[in-house]
Design a protein around this nucleic acid. Structure first.
Lengths: 356, 356
DNA sequence: CTGTTAGCGCGTTCAC
DNA sequence: GTGAACGCGCTAACAG
């Protein structure tokens, strides 16, 4: 009776039985760092192949030798910017021999929490949370507790593209200069002569939107242009909804010559609405976006936007979390702010001189 | 000495010690399906909270109660179509309480194999391989062996958007009608009157390209249009390279009035080159793509393309693999071919009447 | 109701 | 060189 080799996966015991040796011997052959007689080794190796043995990660993990895991949560893999972060994480993690655990929250804080819980159980070395949130008091409290829990169990909470929780909270933060990027890109519009700049898209409750709005306002202030609430038009981050919203806005009032779309996808939707309304970009209306996702190049005109180092953020997140106990690691390194830069393309021009 | 509660994660033992009960009692409180005295339960629950206990998935898995895992491998998360499949998988998996393990292969067969190996060790319930491959003999042999290995260990190999390996191989296959879609979309061009249709992009060694090419040729045959090798222009799947390739092609010869781009991204690159060459789509040249990714709507003109049910493929993959032992499951259901459909938009018109 | 015993698959002691 | 014994953390049996 050859053990359970027939059904289910073969265990060390099955292999040992077949090779006529004891379990530890097989283990040694596999590990390779212990002297084993050549003849025995051959027999074991044959049995290993015959039974198609694969080590059980769970048992290994229990013993302390488990394959390490890096886990991350994002709201939707289909978003190009999230996908870039995910790619960066995956790349760096697998470069270091780590497996990647992925959860999607759909933007729901409850699902995000649940996901983190699962990842803790899994014993993930790092738990990476990606993207915007509603930064209220309950959120901060929960997150701080989570960070401490993970820290106690030797794991690490990493916040990517999300504000820090305070000095006392043991979490790694990888941000990008969101407000600065918004300030710079709005500045481009203003410098080209635009005075009526529509801020388009987003939900001010989300940190990402709020920061971009702040940059927009600061740029306005720098140029001495008074802020007008009427020039802030909410719309979701969805291209389709952005299209509809811009169409309606144009039907209602054409009281702007420049548009700062909170996202490239939003810009794409807006562009279609503007074009269909018989207006030209950038001749009649200038348009800028944010994120610099690859399809931004496919727009006509090619979109001027803000480049965000999403992939690098992903890589950095993994690196910081995994190297935090290393030789040259200091707590200060656990909070990183990556730069953004404006990518000049073809969607900005001076405002038209004659009134429309 | 309260065990290891200070550093590392708390175990059942720590909790039991603190609550003054035995280990199984704590286990029962957690499981909840066993009678426990109310007073004891309270004490245990407090200890659980105090110590911030989290169950160890690995120990549970070893015992047979582990959180199940669905694993998948794709070449690049940043590709919108892959991202859609990934989303479908994640959605269906988490709906069924499964965790998702993600690996990226970069299109390298060796890395793909390595990834599958890791996933086997992890004891994944299903291992899903996504996307095109070079379908040669070594590949088929390796894959078949892998399928059998996984099958023996109670897991399942799932091939998504990739041809089956033969009846005898225990694998689940979720395909879409790739050739049919290519046939239909090429037919649109032909029906509009085009006779010189350029097949643009892709690498014929990859299954996806080969199938689309086959559909293209069949459509040509149906319309009695002879196939010309000169009208097959290779280019990678990258938008940037497609742009360059189309620019060069146009400089060399404008011997076509219609373009079938193997991918929407390729179509985007081609569109830019065509437009910059002073040609109009669809007035001078008609252009179609494949995949129907969201940004295809942002192109101007909006791209006529083939819709592929990527998300559904992801969901189906998980469903088939997990339900294969269910009541109404038959082996025949383990091979599915999903339909594609042409999405008519604005990038096709009859060819110009006067010679350019 | 609760504690004791046993074992999941593996790797690391120890002896022989 | 190799086998026997033990324990990682957990849960399912069996006592009591």
């Amino acid at each position: 009776m050859p053990g359970r080799a027939e059904r289910g996966r073969a265990t060390l015991k099955d292999v040992a039985l077949r090779a006529g040796v004891s379990v530890p011997t097989v283990s040694r052959v596999i590990a390779g760092n212990y002297p084993v007689a050549t003849a025995t080794r051959r027999r074991v190796e044959k049995a290993l192949r015959d039974l198609d043995y694969v080590a059980n990660t769970h048992a290994r993990a229990l013993r302390g030798h488990g394959a390490k895991t890096v886990a991350f949560v994002l709201s939707d893999v289909r978003g190009p910017s999230f996908a870039q972060v995910a790619h960066g994480i995956e790349e760096e993690a697998s470069r270091r021999g780590r497996l990647c655990l992925l959860c999607v929250s759909g933007g729901d804080p409850a699902r995000e929490l649940e996901a983190v819980h699962l990842m803790r159980q899994q014993g993930a070395e790092a738990v990476i949370l990606i993207g915007s949130v509603v930064d209220d008091e309950p959120y901060r409290r929960t997150m701080a507790a989570l960070a401490r829990s993970l820290d106690r169990s030797g794991s690490r909470l990493v916040l990517v593209g999300r504000p820090p929780l305070g000095e006392a909270v043991p979490a790694t933060v990888v941000e990008y200069d969101n407000e600065g990027g918004a300030h710079a890109i709005t500045g481009r519009l203003l410098a080209a002569g635009h005075r009526d700049v529509l801020l388009f898209g987003g939900d001010a409750a989300l940190t990402t939107s709020a920061e971009r709005l702040a940059g927009y306002r600061r740029a306005l202030a720098d140029f001495g242009v008074p802020h007008r609430d009427a020039l802030v038009e909410k719309a979701s981050f969805d291209r389709g909804e952005a299209y509809v919203a811009m169409r309606e806005r144009l039907a209602r009032a054409r009281d702007f010559t420049g548009v700062f779309a909170l996202t490239d996808a939003v810009a794409a939707g807006a562009l279609r609405a503007i074009t269909e309304a018989g207006l030209a970009v950038p001749d009649d209306i200038s348009l800028v976006g944010y994120d610099d996702v690859p399809p931004a190049t496919d727009l006509r005109p090619r979109l001027t936007t803000v480049h965000v180092p999403y992939e690098e953020m992903g890589r950095t997140a993994v690196r910081l979390a995994l190297d935090r106990h290393g030789p040259a690691a200091s707590p200060a390194d656990q909070h990183v702010l990556l730069g953004t830069r404006v990518v000049l393309r073809d969607s900005v021009a001076p405002p038209p001189t004659r009134p429309r």
